[in-house]
Design a protein around this nucleic acid. Structure first.
Length: 547
RNA sequence: GCCCCCGUAGCUCAGGGGACAGAGCAGGGGACUUCUAAUCCCAAGGCCGCAGGUUCGAAUCCUGCCGGGGGCGCCA
């Protein structure tokens, strides 16, 4: 709202100053320092060169024109630094924000439609169905799920998908290991040696097909683990089913027919080097077995055939070398490069007992996602994964996490929400009157603490759009912490229900509190973290309280 | 050798062209007869790995180096 008014004013001033061509976009931002005003524009700096003007002079001229025909809420406009045009506003623009938050509520506020209904398939986790999910899998689960939540709020139509590599050598080794343990023996050398194999083998009914049974067992286990984090997949795709359907063979035929694949040395190769890869890659080995790549290409073609406009794959960074060949294969089938986007996440390092816990399903020294959730709870676990960008490696020290679980930022944010609920409950108890927001004198909200909460709420729309566009859900986490901080500060300095408070101010503050609640609810919901109405006591939750 | 990611306060990390770089934790000092102190405030803490370049402006973009992690198979 305010942004549009200011940009319009700048645009008009530029036109009247004879600057042409007018810049394609005029950007305004929120300066870091209060003395630089509420909003700031660099247009004069950007335009100075093409306009053949001195930036400060141009900025001065723009400022004068704007002052002569001031946009709403403008108090004064100044030129600063090398040529910034700084807008100093009255608090009214923030009171407008408050009205908007209240009017639009948790469903409507900060909702965008730039996704334009784009059907986007987000594939994440996709760990092999040969065992329980380890801690690292939680990062992909939390990331993928929250990304989908954010995309949905921005107008996309996301679909959560898990791909199961349920055939091949490792599945055979997994099945053999189950059979061996079931018979009281040792798994083969290259089999799976974890304790869970022994446990699962004991559960396996006599006469069961170990591969089928083990697959179902593992899948159920993974589904249960991610469900504890609040993650549910819309589709579990099976590689075996894909093979059975003939889609893999058909993909091969299509690639060969178009010349994208060729035979050499007894194998079938993909001309991936033409698509930007280092070299051509084998699709079918000389012994007739397809490599990983061929069914993967078929799988991605299948996803596109199911009507998705965009595929987002969330992979561990250890697979980065695989991106180009898959992309080349998908493009060779006639799809556009932009339809497949691979997000690479750095791996999670788990520390235990002061040293790195090497994660290997085969060796069996797993640190399970379930273990982490047992220790810190689902909310703290999920928040932990969403704290930092996927590009930076995450180290989870189980000892530290257990010892400091109460210091997890999730409680800071949840506490803000709980405080609000408590405030509202007290207000209801005391029968405090809260007239409709339109009847309340919001201009009474002028304390820096109050305005800070409103500024924070205003930023949510931008934060969400950025998080969606950059596939960076952690930006929302950062925002939630910021809003919670602003609210805690407000709560501390600005009494809402104190008896000596003027009723009009109390009413305005109650609405401000309600707006903060709306912001927190939106963020916590998108992050997949609960918004408790009260915090459980500290003592009851001392580390091993596993629910 | 080539490719990808990272290097910011003692620690864990935000910030990823805009003005004087932020938060949490640890450590120092304060604030509860009050709507929950899981909170708040103050002080302290930085050649933003190094060196060049682009730009009116670089922690941010480009190049090179250094350091850490990962990947370079007719494995998955």
């Amino acid at each position: 709202m305010i942004r549009k008014h200011l940009i319009d004013a700048l645009s008009a001033a530029l036109a009247r100053s004879g600057v042409e061509p007018l810049p394609a976009t005029i950007e305004i931002g929120r300066p870091a320092r209060a003395e630089h005003g509420d909003w700031s524009s660099n247009v004069a700096l950007v335009c100075a060169k093409v306009a053949g003007r001195n930036p400060r002079d141009l900025a001065q001229e723009l400022a004068e024109r704007i002052a002569a025909d001031p946009p709403v809420h403008l108090r004064r406009v100044e030129v600063a630094g090398p040529g910034f045009v700084n807008f100093h506003l009255d608090g009214g623009w923030l009171h407008d924000v408050l009205r908007q938050v209240i009017a639009e509520g948790t469903d409507g506020y900060a909702r965008a439609d730039f996704g334009a209904g784009t059907a986007v398939n987000v594939e994440f986790v996709s760990a092999n169905p040969t065992g329980p999910l380890h801690v690292g899998g939680g990062r992909w689960a939390a990331y993928g799920d929250t990304l989908c939540n954010i995309l949905a709020r921005c107008g996309f139509a996301p679909h959560r998908e898990y791909y199961l590599n349920d055939r091949g050598r490792q599945m055979d080794a997994f099945a053999e290991s189950l059979v061996a343990r079931n018979g009281g023996g040792e798994p083969p050398e290259d089999g799976y040696h974890g304790d869970y194999i022994t446990e699962w083998a004991a559960e396996m009914p006599a006469g069961a097909d170990a591969l089928e049974w083990g697959y179902a067992r593992a899948r159920r286990d993974v589904a249960g683990s991610v469900a504890r984090l609040g993650v549910r997949f819309d589709t579990w795709s099976s590689e075996r089913a894909l093979v059975r359907s003939g889609a893999v063979e058909e993909t091969l035929r299509t690639l060969e027919a178009s010349g994208a694949a060729y035979r050499a040395d007894g194998a079938v190769w993909l001309r991936s080097a033409d698509g930007g890869d280092d070299k051509d890659r084998v699709l079918v080995r000389s012994d007739g077995e397809p490599t990983y790549l061929l069914p993967d290409i078929a799988y991605h073609a299948d996803k596109l055939a199911r009507g998705f406009d965009l595929l987002i794959d969330v992979w561990g960074a250890d697979h980065h070398g695989y991106v180009e060949r898959l992309t080349a294969g998908v493009c060779a089938l006639g799809h556009r490069r932009e339809q497949l986007e691979v997000v690479l996440g750095q791996l999670v390092t788990v520390m235990r007992g002061g040293e790195e816990a090497k994660i290997s399903k085969r060796a069996g020294n797993l640190v399970l996602l379930d273990d982490l959730v047992d220790i810190v709870g689902a909310d703290a676990a999920r928040m932990t994964f969403l704290l930092q960008s996927l590009g930076s490696r995450q180290t989870i020290d189980l000892d530290v996490v257990a010892a400091q679980s109460m210091e997890n930022p999730v409680f800071y944010v949840q506490y803000a929400h709980a405080r609000i609920c408590s405030l509202m409950a007290t207000a209801a108890e005391r029968g405090v009157d809260r007239p409709p927001v339109d009847d309340v004198a919001l201009e009474l909200l002028s304390d820096p603490r109050e305005l800070e909460v409103l500024r924070s709420l205003h930023a949510l729309g931008d934060v969400l759009a950025e998080a969606a566009r950059e596939r960076a859900p952690h930006k929302l986490t950062t925002w939630a912490r910021q809003l919670a901080g602003a609210f805690h500060g407000f709560y501390h300095d600005c009494p809402v229900l104190r008896s000596d408070l003027d009723p009009p101010l109390a009413a305005a503050r109650l609405w401000l509190t309600e707006a903060a609640r709306i912001g927190l609810v939106i963020a916590l919901d998108l992050l997949g973290v609960s918004a408790p109405e009260r915090m459980e006591s500290l003592a009851a939750d001392s580390g091993e309280a596993a629910e």
